[in-house]
Measured scan of single mutants.
Amino acid sequence: HNLTITQGKLFFHYNPKLCLSEIHKMEEVSGTKGRQERNDIALKTNGDQASCENELLKFSYIRTSFDKILLRWEPYWPPDFRDLLGFMLFYKEAPYQNVTEFDGQDACGSNSWTVVDIDPPLRSNDPKSQNHPGWLMRGLKPWTQYAIFVKTLVTFSDERRTYGAKSDIIYVQTDATNPSVPLDPISVSNSSSQIILKWKPPSDPNGNITHYLVFWERQAEDSELFELDYCLKGLKLPSRTWSPPFESEDSQKHNQSEYEDSAGECCSCPKTDSQILKELEESSFRKTFEDYLHNVVFVPRKTSSGTGAEDPRPSRKRRSLGDVGNVTVAVPTVAAFPNTSSTSVPTSPEEHRPFEKVVNKESLVISGLRHFTGYRIELQACNQDTPEERCSVAAYVSARTMPEAKADDIVGPVTHEIFENNVVHLMWQEPKEPNGLIVLYEVSYRRYGDEELHLCVSRKHFALERGCRLRGLSPGNYSVRIRATSLAGNGSWTEPTYFYVTDYLDVPSNIA
């Protein structure tokens, strides 16, 4: 807008934040220059609390790290170098490059900038070799853009010569660093050979998330399962459950009422301010606690030095998902009996873990797994792929695949051998790939016309006998059925096997 004052003059007093240069501009645009008398524009009460600059400061050096910015700028000295009290560095987070010096300023003089007072450097006698002032900004957020400017702080001049310097606002972004852990990993099994893994992005990506790394490792069953005799009275049979499938998407929606109208769909109840505040506090606490764990609990591995020492970490090797089922080394339970199943799973520490690289999504279907087997899954978020990966501390989750139908069934015939004193040795093959492992066998036998009897055969007993022995049988026709019990439950009964026990007292003698 054009402003013209045809008559009258300007009068400025007691404006401590208004620089004289701005008042002189007002004289020019209003056409009143030359009308004012000496005392109409006070030299001592206008701009006496402001830094009124008329020179431009330029930054000469900028260096960044993930949490620091090192700045240096060209030296500046007023005509009387004693008038320079120091520099004021202003900075704040700036997602967009549209910041002005006066953003967030209120009537009390406060604003949204963080201000650092910096002492002037030592003055050199040689004007050509003056030290460049600077400042190291610490405690910054990774991968965050900051708006920065600097200006001088000078003393009051009796001659009211307006001098000083100020830089333009520059924008500097800190470097990326390792992201925080992925949030809320959930693993479920939808079949006997697959596990579905879902997660949420890290709360602090500290860069642009480029991919996720998912490692999985087959877990050995508890050692007590191999040692305890679950045929003993009072000892509860062990059981394991597989990871249940995901709930429906509708039930997972946030901010939804727990109660549904019987007449149909209901609208979600909005969260109160107290609920939102509580969630923010919980989120802040979780982030602080995660940072504490990362800094205190997890110790970084030592990389190899120039002395030739090897990095103890196993090298990563990509495998196809079809090879995942046989990740671990199978060892027989008892070496003397080769027909026992290889369900003991000690994992070799030198073995390469299978892994998958996930790009542009937060889910993965891990296939080719062994049925009813526990897996430990390790999830890392990465925001750099080359020249070397920059990934987060791992988040861990466990899951067990679903049982395989008929995996616990005894394959092959049940054979028998009759000894003296009416002892019958029953023999059968253990299931080759049971659900988890076989903890015991149930032997059901009966003599024709009598009630059915049951015998429990422990895992250890089966390994020693290759089956079991029935003792003290009365003469007669017998039928026997056997079924295995694994961590997933009972298998199917075998087809009945028949044998006849004679009275050993009636056996004919070869003595003449």
Score class of each variant (00 low, 15 high):
L505K: 09
P238Q: 12
S223Y: 12
P270R: 11
E224Y: 14
S479W: 06
F215K: 08
A399W: 03
E388Y: 14
S274I: 02
N206Y: 03
P205E: 02
R447P: 11
A407P: 02
R370L: 15
I438W: 02
C468H: 09
Q256V: 09
Y445C: 04
V439S: 07
V423I: 07
L237H: 02
Q384W: 15
D273Y: 09
K460W: 14
K233E: 14
K302S: 11
V334G: 11
S342G: 04
V334C: 05
L505N: 09
M427R: 10
R218L: 13
A336R: 08
S305R: 11
D506T: 15
N360C: 15
I410G: 02
P270V: 10
L237N: 06
G207A: 02
E265R: 14
F246V: 06
E224S: 12
R316L: 14
G306R: 14
F246K: 11
Y498C: 10
V324L: 09
N477L: 06
K317F: 13
S203Q: 05
S257H: 05
S274W: 09
L321A: 12
S474L: 08
H371A: 12
I276Q: 15
S315Q: 10
C231I: 02
P338Y: 11
G412D: 12
V329Y: 11
E356P: 07
K317D: 13
R218S: 12
P245W: 12
A463W: 10
S367E: 04
N339I: 14
T386I: 15
A336D: 14
Y500C: 14
N421G: 04
F246G: 10
T494A: 03
P354M: 13
R319L: 06
V214A: 06
S304L: 10
Q256K: 11
T415P: 02
K460R: 07
K287T: 11
T241N: 09
L437I: 08
T401I: 03
L487H: 00
R301V: 07
P387S: 07
R471P: 09
R469L: 08
S492P: 06
T502A: 14
A394N: 08
K432P: 13
S486A: 08
N421S: 11
S367R: 09
R483W: 00
G472C: 03
P314F: 14
Y478N: 00
Y230K: 14
V365L: 14
F215P: 01
D385H: 11
V331M: 09
D323Y: 13
Y259K: 13
W242I: 05
L505Q: 07
P332R: 07
D450Y: 11
L470R: 01
L235H: 11
D506C: 04
G308F: 05
R459Y: 08
Y504W: 09
F499H: 01
Y292T: 07
G472N: 09
N422G: 05
N490H: 00
F337L: 10
Y259S: 12
Q219W: 14
P354L: 12
W216K: 11
V334P: 12
Q384L: 05
V414M: 05
K271H: 06
I418M: 01
S486V: 01
M402G: 03
E495M: 03
V457P: 00
R319E: 14
C266L: 07
D229K: 05
S284W: 15
S341P: 08
S444F: 12
G308A: 12
E279P: 08
L225I: 10
V327N: 07
S315A: 07
S283G: 07
G325I: 11
C468S: 03
R286K: 14
F337N: 15
S509L: 10
D222W: 14
P312Y: 13
G374C: 15
S492N: 03
Y292A: 08
E290F: 15
A381E: 02
E260M: 13
E310I: 05
H461Y: 12
L321M: 11
E290L: 13
G234R: 12
E282R: 10
H294T: 03
S262K: 05
V365I: 07
S342P: 06
T333M: 13
E290A: 14
Y396V: 03
E217H: 14
S257A: 14
R376H: 14
V480N: 02
R319K: 13
T494P: 01
P475T: 10
L455Y: 11
L237E: 15
V334M: 12
E465D: 05
Y498I: 14
C382I: 01
V443L: 08
S223F: 02
C231M: 02
E389W: 13
E221M: 15
W242K: 05
R483P: 00
L237Q: 06
R483V: 01
S509Y: 11
P244G: 12
S305I: 05
C231P: 03
V414G: 01
R469Y: 10
Y375I: 05
S320Q: 08
E495S: 09
R376D: 15
S248E: 04
W242V: 14
K278N: 10
